[in-house]
């Protein structure tokens, strides 16, 4: 369990982290979401003891990271944004070094390493030089490093960044396996990634917590303003008027209107309570405006912030 209270970090006059508080429960996967530069990495670096906060406290399983750093760090496995790999060592040499650093007992070492290597699927590359591995394998070695010493808490900073889609799927699978018996914090700026693996989400923006919620609550709040994209053949104005007439539609705006081929694209904003999609279909058909494309728009992270912060 991690308790974070009123965390502040100044870089000169700039506040990278401004009064963040949240708690991570045991065996929970917490998504840490925010755009680039929102303060995710800084917060994680403070939690793991790499940086000290300007003020505020971090308690890991009851141990303050500043006052009892050794006890607190024992419970944390950390994969920073840039995995801390020695490129001139083989995977096994490297993991053995991490065992030395984390003071894993000699008797347990062999068994533990075998387990970790199997779990993150790096058995075939165990004797290869880290510098010669692909990015996906390097990331896995990074995760293996975090797992050494059986920490109860895993902190993974952007674990899928820069990987190809197949590798991303594999890493996500791995994280889901790990989540069974670890508390996990994952940072990301991709919503879908967080949605897939996390129980709860902390969203931060400009160094502040924008929202803390479970995924289901968050989706419900997000669906408060559902957005649709509609493209059709015909006059844009006519279409907009037809859509606006439908009860429940709060707004309708032109995105693209091409007079030559006579095609238009509009975005529609509707109330939550009513599903306006059937009505729109009939209204368009009545007005003789053939629908070319009709789909709901996934909210972007920006929009989530906008909607959450209400501005």
């Amino acid at each position: 369990m991690i308790e974070i209270n009123n965390l502040v970090k100044h870089y000169g006059d700039k506040k990278a982290v401004n009064d963040i508080s949240f708690t991570v429960n045991d065996d929970e996967v917490l998504g840490f979401l925010g755009p680039n530069g929102a303060g995710k990495s800084t917060t994680m670096n403070i939690i793991t003891g790499y940086l000290s906060s300007t003020s505020g406290t971090v308690k890991v399983n009851g141990h303050d990271i500043l006052e009892e750093p050794e006890l607190a760090k024992k419970d944390i496995g950390y994969l920073p944004e840039l995995p801390p790999l020695y490129l001139d060592m083989t995977v096994l040499e490297y993991l053995n070094f991490i065992c030395d650093l984390k003071q894993v007992k000699r008797s347990e070492r062999k068994e533990q390493l075998a387990k970790i290597i199997a779990m993150v699927k790096i058995v075939d590359v165990a004797d290869r030089l880290i510098g010669n591995l692909s990015k996906g394998y390097k990331q896995r070695v990074g995760i293996a490093q975090a797992l050494v010493g059986n920490p109860s808490i895993l902190i993974l900073d952007e674990p899928t960044v820069g990987l190809d889609p197949n590798q991303i799927i594999e890493i996500r699978k791995l994280i889901r396996t790990l989540a069974k018996d670890h508390s996990v914090i994952i940072s990301s700026h991709i919503l879908s990634e967080i949605q897939e693996v996390c129980d709860r989400v902390v969203i931060i923006n400009k160094g502040r917590v924008a929202a803390i919620d479970t995924i289901s609550d968050l989706s419900r709040r997000l669906s408060g303003s559902s957005k649709l994209l509609l493209s059709f053949k015909g006059d844009a104005k006519k279409g907009i008027n037809a859509v606006r007439a439908i009860p429940g539609v709060s707004d309708c705006k032109i995105r693209i209107s091409d007079q030559d081929i006579h095609e238009s694209e509009v975005t529609i904003q509707s109330d939550l309570a009513t599903d306006v999609r059937t009505s729109i279909f009939y209204a368009m058909s009545k007005n003789n405006l053939p629908i070319l494309e009709f789909r709901s728009l996934d909210p972007t992270l920006e929009e989530i912030f906008l909607s959450i912060t209400g501005s």
Binding site: T48, G49, Y50, P69, E70, L71, K73, K74, I76, Y78, P80, L82, P83, P84, L85, Y86, L87, I98, L101, K102, Q103, Q145
Partner: peptide, 14 residues
């Protein structure tokens, strides 16, 4: 340069 120094800060070594 390689970012490996983070190991010394985040593992329980002095």
């Amino acid at each position: 340069k390689r970012g490996t120094e983070i190991l010394y800060y985040t593992t329980p070594v002095d």
